[in-house]
Amino acid sequence: MDASQLALRVHAAALRLGLTVEAADELTEAVQPDLDQVVAERDGLLAERARYVGVEPAIAAELKRGWLAAHEVCDAAERQALQWEQPLPVPEWVGAVRTALDGPGGGMRVRWVEGCEAGANSAVPEVLGGGTHWEG
């Protein structure tokens, strides 16, 4: 809806409220600059919103790919250590990386992936004050 359409609506509303045609015309002329400004601001906001629509799922998908790739590296290191007849110890970094990925309790893995697939920000880990804070 552009400013001229809004002006027509203002004019019609003024007539419905009982103003004379002349008074409705004067009111419409008086508010026209404001209507132009409102429409310009709305168009700017719509253009800015268009820049961000659809970005959240792409970010969530990228986070999920990185998260899964890190788990694959951990799984591969664990398999390589355990493949022998006399297994080698699993590298210490595997546990540290998994804790960082899954949270301290280790139960975040499935919920975090599901949250990323759904684009739910509440399941995405956030770094707060140098430590890791887990939500979800």
Rank of each mutant, 00 (worst) to 15 (best):
G103S: 09
L46Q: 15
A96F: 01
V90W: 00
E92C: 00
R42D: 08
G105I: 04
H71W: 04
A100V: 05
L63I: 07
V113A: 12
P57K: 11
Q86C: 10
D102P: 00
A81L: 08
R51H: 04
V73G: 02
G95K: 02
E56Y: 01
V73C: 01
E48H: 13
L68T: 11
V90G: 03
G119S: 11
A69I: 01
V53L: 15
L101Y: 07
A69V: 00
D102Y: 04
H71G: 07
Q86L: 14
I59K: 07
V97F: 01
L63W: 09
L68Q: 13
E78V: 05
V73F: 04
A100N: 08
A69S: 12
E114D: 14
W93I: 10
C74Q: 07
G119Y: 12
H71M: 10
R79S: 10
Q80N: 14
L68F: 01
W112T: 13
E117A: 06
E78N: 05
R109S: 09
R49W: 04
G105H: 11
R111K: 14
P91R: 09
A96N: 09
G107T: 15
A50M: 05
W67E: 05
D43K: 07
Q83G: 12
G44H: 09
G103D: 12
R49P: 01
V90I: 15
P89T: 09
G66C: 09
P87D: 08
A118N: 11
A58Y: 02
E62V: 06
P91Y: 03
G106K: 06
Y52A: 10
I59Y: 02
C74T: 14
R79L: 13
A60E: 02
R109G: 05
G107D: 15
A70V: 01
C116D: 05
G106Y: 01
V53W: 00
V97K: 01
G44I: 02
G105L: 14
C116M: 15
E48R: 15
E41G: 00
